[in-house]
Write a protein that binds this DNA or RNA. Structure first.
Lengths: 170, 170
DNA sequence: ACTTTTTATCTCATTACTGAGATACTTAGT
DNA sequence: ACTAAGTATCTCAGTAATGAGATAAAAAGT
C-alpha cells in the first residue's frame, strides 16, 4: 500500500475541499506511515526466520487458535482463496503445518501446526513480541492505550462503512 | 500486509512475555486493522478511476508537487526501483504522465503530469478527499487530532528505529 | 586526463499473490 | 429420493510488484 502524499497543489491554488477533508487526509497520511514503519520493523524481524509476513501470519494464527479450517484462516489473514492454498502449500512443503481432513464435512480441511511448526513458533514468537514492543517504544504506555482506543474506534467504523461484506473477496 | 492475530495460545499457558509486549502487540493489531479498513475504502474509491493504489499515489504526488525526478518519486511512494519504472511506464502508456529529460543530469528523468493527467486529478482528487473524510468519520475532529499526534510520534520513532537508511531497498 | 566510486534509471527473472472458474461435497426445497 | 442452491477448496492464467544486476553518466580522487 503506497503512502498517500502530504503536500498542497504545486500552483498555490486554494484547495476546493474543506477543513474536514484536510484533517482526514492528514490523519490518513500519518496512519499509513505509522503502519508502514512498524510493519517494516515487524517484517524485518519475521524475515530472520525465512518467512514472509503472510506465512508468519498463518503460523501465528494457528499457534494461538489451534487447528483451523482453511476458510477461517482466509477470513482472518485477509487473503484470497487462492492465496490461502498457496501459503498453506508452501508451509506444508516446509513441514511447518499440515492439512487434516474435517470429519463432518468432506469438502473442508483443517490447517494445523506440525510438531516442527509448534517448536518454531515457541522459539520465534516471544522475540517477535519484543520486536513489536520496541517498534512501539516511541509512545508511553498511557499513550499506547489512548492510541489503541482511537484506532479501534476508527477501524471498526471504517470496517462497518464497507458493509459487513467484502473485507476480501474469494 | 496480513493482519496480526489477536488471541492467546490454544493451550491456556501463561504467555512468556510481559505487559509491555501485550500492550504493543494489541496496539499493532488495531493499527493494522484500522490501516487496512481505511485503505480498503480508499482503494475502492481509487478503483473507480481504473487506477491501482500505487498508480494513484504517483499521480497524487505529481499533482501536489509538480514534476519530480524518478528517484524522488521512488522515495516518496515507497516502491522499488523496478517498481517505479513499471508504474511510470503504465501511466505513460495511458497518457497521464510523461518522462522529461533533466537538463543538468543526463542520467536522470523527470516524471510530470500531462494535460490529461492534470485534468484527471483535478476531477478525481476532491472526491477522493471526501471518501477519506467519510472513512475517518468514526472519530470526531478532536479525536482525529489526538490520533494524528499519537500516530505521528509513533511513526517517526519507528522510522528512526530502522536507521535513516532502508525505508525500501532499490 | 584517468581511474574509482557513486548515483539514476532500466532490464529481467522470479515471487506472491488475485480472482474467475472448476470440482466436489452439503444443505434445503419439493 | 431428486434437484437446486450454497459452500469449501483448488487450479490456473494473469498481475503488480521485488531486487539483483546492467548500463550510463556524473563526481571525486590522484
Amino acid at each position: 500500500m503506497a503512502s498517500p502524499s502530504t503536500a498542497r497543489t504545486a500552483d498555490d491554488e486554494t484547495p476546493r475541499y474543506g477543513e474536514a477533508e484536510e484533517r482526514a487526509l492528514a490523519l490518513w497520511v500519518v496512519l499509513s506511515r505509522a503502519a508502514q514503519a512498524v510493519g517494516a520493523l515487524s517484517a524485518a524481524d519475521i524475515a530472520r526466520s525465512e518467512l514472509t509476513v503472510a506465512e508468519f501470519g498463518v503460523l501465528e494464527l494457528l499457534h494461538h487458535k489451534g487447528p483451523l479450517l482453511l476458510g477461517e484462516v482466509q477470513k482472518r489473514v485477509l487473503v484470497s482463496s487462492g492465496g490461502v492454498t498457496y501459503i498453506v502449500d508452501r508451509l506444508s512443503e516446509r513441514g511447518l503445518i499440515e492439512r487434516r481432513a474435517c470429519p463432518n464435512d468432506r469438502r473442508a480441511r483443517y490447517a494445523a501446526l506440525t510438531r516442527k511448526g509448534k517448536a518454531l513458533m515457541k522459539q520465534v514468537f516471544p522475540q517477535h513480541a519484543v520486536a513489536i514492543r520496541d517498534a512501539m517504544a516511541g509512545l508511553s504506555p498511557a499513550e499506547q492505550e489512548q492510541a489503541h482506543a482511537l484506532l479501534r474506534k476508527m477501524g471498526l467504523a471504517a470496517a462497518a462503512a464497507m458493509g459487513p461484506k467484502a473485507v476480501r473477496e474469494g
